[in-house]
Design a protein around this nucleic acid. Structure first.
Lengths: 159, 159
DNA sequence: TATACTCGGACAGCAAGAGTCCGAGTAGCG
DNA sequence: CGCTACTCGGACTCTTGCTGTCCGAGTATA
């Protein structure tokens, strides 16, 4: 799993606090990570339509939809790619006892089992939204945590 | 996800047919894959205790337990490593608004959600055994498929 | 209209998986 | 009892994709 998923999720939670666009540099400084690399993850999110970018002097990134309608699955698929983690190379059609291609109407049992497990994983990710994460942050770190982030985002003037 | 998982699972299903040790070279020829690389996956399975190796002239690999008691999760953990796919770098403890370490008694909400999804994935993998896969192969390719593999394993004399 | 600030895609660096090889060890056979 | 041939086991190299960085295109602002 790509490490950028963690950054993208935290950024989405942070973007919940501000309806105005937030520059990528601010998000990078807030999380103390490489701004140049974080930009790549944000571009992936923008390409997937989860966030939209506005250019210009007071530009940045902002969520396109309500946090309740953005699931973790959306973010993971945007950053790590939509393809399944398990790839079936059709090993049954190779070797001296190869199954003829005409008999392969459905995926082989191995692929079915692995893809079934991935489906369960996707279902669990789709059941959690960015709004849920923001709520949990409030209960964990206290209700003043997210407003403090909002204030820092608008008021931080790096000398 | 490592591609060797597919090879390892197919090998386990094949090993179901023979109670006698099967050399790695035979398994590689049967699946038409690199024997040198397949050895690495089999070594991982042996290290995890799923299969045991016997050396010598008529040596090879054989299952240690009954196929009904070997789950897909066992194989995946043996090949891909037991660590979780999502790694939390404790991003909340960095940056100007870092959460103090004393307040981090439990994992952050992002990690909890991701790990919960992985737990669902693991649960689905643990619900399927190698015996289930072998049964599904029988229903898919006909009940004579696995006995044919067994016959090929014992009788194949590469000229 | 000039400017400064933003995003966007193109460019190196590195670690982990993919693939290969040869030596240690053992069961079978003369 | 010794030899041989066959097996596994770990050490080595290579490629792919993630990690990290950079500069140019575009736009809202003053």
């Amino acid at each position: 799993m790509s490490g950028g998923v963690e950054w993208a999720l935290h950024c989405c939670v942070v973007l919940t606090t501000s309806s105005r666009p937030v520059p990528a540099a601010k998000l990078a400084e807030l999380h103390d990570v490489s701004g140049s690399y974080l930009a790549k993850q944000l571009q992936s999110l923008a390409r997937a339509g989860l966030i939209h970018s506005v250019q210009g002097k007071s530009g940045g990134y902002a969520l396109t939809r309500a946090p309740e309608s953005i699931t973790l699955l959306d973010v993971v698929r945007a950053v790590d790619g939509p393809g399944p983690a398990f790839v079936c190379t059709e090993i049954r059609q190779r070797g001296p006892l190869a199954t003829p291609a005409t008999a392969c109407t459905k995926p082989c049992p191995v692929a079915r089992a692995m893809w079934g497990a991935e489906e369960a994983w996707r279902r669990a990710l789709a059941a959690v939204t960015i709004a849920d994460l923001a709520r949990d942050v409030g209960t964990d770190s206290g209700p003043e945590a997210l407003p403090a982030v909002r204030a820092w985002l608008t008021g931080a003037n790096d000398s």
